[in-house]
Amino acid sequence: MTRDEIYETLKGFLVELFEIPEEQISLDANLADDLDLDSIDAVDLILKLQEFIGRKVSAEQFRSVRTVRDVIDQVNELLEQAA
């Protein structure tokens, strides 16, 4: 899966889970400051990503994540490990 495809999927999740308008989502958008996701939202997102990646993901692995781009990096890495 390419990074673009991951980005599109992630956008779909953000719209579906949090009703964030798609045009507000960019690679540099900060999850907390720009998209106003809080800790509970983060848990929901991680659960969704876990489903998508097809394996257990710990909150620890997303601790350093700040922006949409960071999420894509992290998912990309996890997918590569799984492959």
Binding site: E8, T9, K11, G12, V15, E16, E22
Partner: peptide
């Protein structure tokens, strides 16, 4: 906002 458009396909 039809439910069917969600996730097929985001772009």
């Amino acid at each position: 906002d039809l439910r069917w458009f969600e996730g097929h396909f985001p772009d």
